[in-house]
Simulated scan of single mutants.
Amino acid sequence: MSPIASPSKGVRKESGVARLLGSGSAGIAELAVFHPVDTIAKRLMSNTGKINGVGQLNAVIFKEHAGATLPRKFFSLFPGLGYAAGYKVLQRIYKYGGQPFVRDYLGQHHNEKFEAAFGKGSGKAIMHATAGSLIGIGEIVLLPLDVLKIKRQTNPEAFRGRGLFKIVADEGFGLYRGWQWTAARNAPGSFALFGGSAFAKEALGLSDYNAATWTQNFIASIAGASASLIVSAPLDVIKTRIQNKNFENPESGFRIISNMMKNEGITSFFKGLTPKLLMTGPKLVFSFWLAQTLIPIFDKKLM
């Protein structure tokens, strides 16, 4: 199947199969490499106290395994792997594979409006960012898997011996608790991710983003991932704290904000940002770069 030219100038339309294979492969590879890193970041964001010294940091990251051997500590960073596999692979397929479909729709119906408002190059980049933002909001459909993954990583006591189906039956739509904050976090975060990448490719002189080399995709992914993490950091902290509470003791986002301001100060909204940039940043760069690189490759193979 040959690629079809998109109505948006300079944007080539890949096949649906290529998008599925490229984004799915990126999700699987990201999970295999970075799940321990994600656990560390989530535990740091969930910590409500100040960390003084290596001993306390060790306790926050490894919890009851803080005094265990190094291999035991390492394997303690893999809780919720089953939920993470379901969530991460579906999320990457939905996000990286779905954004091009929304982008194609905007290009077909609203390309002239974007170009008139922002100029040719910038208009295309903003269109990519807008498509990313819209697909990011819709990501809340996968929220229950994310909730279960985070609880396994940060608050395993919340399960109290219950399995997946028992939890779903007991909690129902309670698993969507905090969906508003997730949507509020995803909208600007995904806008910055796809927009930052698109603007970087414009700066690199690319008119066809699919023609980017591995190196160009890597540079663009760094720009997009860094922008996304910084923009979404405060809402990500709130979202994580909503999701890591016990099922029977939920706490609203506004209550969490109030307590954070009162007890921890304004800087608490950026807790975990440094390790996220150093650890989660490369994870996002890796998966985004891999998806952007693999989708055109799969598309050519399927031609």
Rank of each mutant, 00 (worst) to 15 (best):
F114P: 00
A117F: 00
A117L: 04
F118Q: 00
G121C: 08
S122E: 00
K124D: 02
I126R: 00
M127N: 01
H128G: 05
H128S: 10
A129H: 08
A129N: 07
L134H: 08
I135G: 03
I137E: 11
G138S: 11
G138M: 09
E139K: 07
V141M: 12
V141I: 13
L143P: 09
L143S: 07
I150R: 03
Q153N: 15
Q153I: 04
Q153K: 04
P156M: 05
P156D: 12
E157G: 09
F159H: 14
F159S: 11
F159T: 13
F159K: 11
R160Y: 07
R162N: 08
G163I: 09
K166E: 14
I167V: 14
V168Q: 15
D170I: 10
D170G: 04
E171P: 02
F173W: 12
F173L: 15
G174W: 00
G174M: 01
L175W: 11
Y176G: 04
Y176N: 09
G178H: 03
W179I: 11
Q180A: 14
W181G: 06
R185G: 11
N186R: 13
N186E: 10
A187I: 15
A187W: 15
L193P: 05
L193V: 09
G196Q: 05
A203S: 10
A203C: 05
A203Q: 09
G205I: 01
G205Y: 01
L206K: 08
S207P: 00
N210C: 08
A211Y: 07
T215E: 02
Q216H: 08
N217Q: 12
F218E: 07
S221M: 09
I222V: 15
A223H: 06
G224W: 03
S226K: 11
S226D: 05
S228V: 02
S228I: 02
I230A: 03
V231A: 13
S232D: 04
A233R: 00
A233V: 01
L235R: 05
K239P: 02
R241G: 01
